[in-house]
Amino acid sequence: MTTVSDIHESTHHYSAGAAPGPNSLLLVWDAPNLDMGLGAILGGRPSAGNRPRFDAIGRWLIQRAQELSHVTGERVEPEATVFTNVAPGGADVVRPWVEALRNVGFAVFAKPKTDEDSDVDPDMIAHIRRRAEEGVLKGVVVASADGQNFQDTLDELAGAGLPVTVIGFHEHAAWAVASERFDFIDLEDIPGVFREPLPRVNLDQLPETGAWLQPFRPLSALLNSKH
């Protein structure tokens, strides 16, 4: 398990990212993971029209930072960061989205997706660790359902007294929903994030007529999978 001392030690080897600033409520947005979760709910690849609105997320984060400032008696600034991969030949497709994020006020960490080991997971953890080492981290918000990567670090930060929030879809983040150490907020519950309600099916509250659950991927994908 990652400890707070481990977090401090590892950050000495991490040099990317912005310079230390004021007290920070840090949002780390796991774009590949949330994109996959949204696609599972929609039954296909999300389009521009049904992706989350980052201006709404930014306003929500600002409000949280103001509330944290009031509680702590210290000025806390929101810091919004999106981590994403860029597939070979996909720069032209991703560029407008990245520029829109930066225009809203989000920093973006983009990494080429060359193989299975080039995910942004370690970069997200490293950024959280660096802010913890700098002593400016006053709260952290992780937008992801990936408990395998985040849970240990978030448990340790919460145990050290930092307020921790996880944003995601409750269908895919049981580890966060059930945690007593930090808060969970369903992405759809943040005002204005989605233009239209998501077509979600809750197995605990199925309609009497039943509901279709579409496959996450086509059967033909089995032809390329490893045995």
Rank of each mutant, 00 (worst) to 15 (best):
L42E: 10
L26H: 04
V28M: 02
A19W: 02
M36Q: 11
S24H: 08
L42H: 06
G17F: 11
F54K: 05
H13Q: 13
M36L: 15
A56F: 02
A19P: 08
G21A: 13
F54V: 04
A31S: 12
L34N: 06
P46S: 01
G37F: 09
A40T: 11
L27T: 02
H13C: 08
I41P: 00
L26C: 08
A31W: 00
P52Q: 09
P32K: 01
L26P: 05
S15P: 09
G37P: 03
L34Q: 08
G17I: 11
G39H: 04
A31F: 02
P22F: 07
R53S: 10
A19T: 13
N50C: 04
N23W: 02
L42Y: 04
G49I: 01
A16P: 11
N33M: 00
P32H: 00
S24E: 13
H13M: 12
H13T: 13
N33V: 01
A56S: 04
A48E: 14
S24A: 15
L25T: 08
F54L: 06
D35Y: 06
A18S: 14
F54I: 04
A31G: 05
A19G: 11
G39S: 11
A40M: 13
L38T: 05
G21K: 12
S47H: 06
A40R: 14
P52E: 07
S15R: 15
A56H: 02
L27F: 01
G39M: 09
A40E: 12
P22E: 14
G21Y: 11
L27K: 00
P52A: 09
G44E: 09
A19Y: 02
D30K: 03
P20N: 10
F54N: 05
D35C: 10
G21F: 12
P20F: 12
R53N: 07
L38D: 07
L42W: 05
H13L: 14
P52I: 07
A18Y: 12
A18T: 14
L26W: 02
G39Y: 01
D55W: 00
L27G: 01
P22Y: 09
I41T: 03
D30E: 08
P52C: 06
D55E: 10
G44H: 06
P46L: 02
G39C: 07
R53L: 08
G43L: 04
G17T: 05
F54D: 07
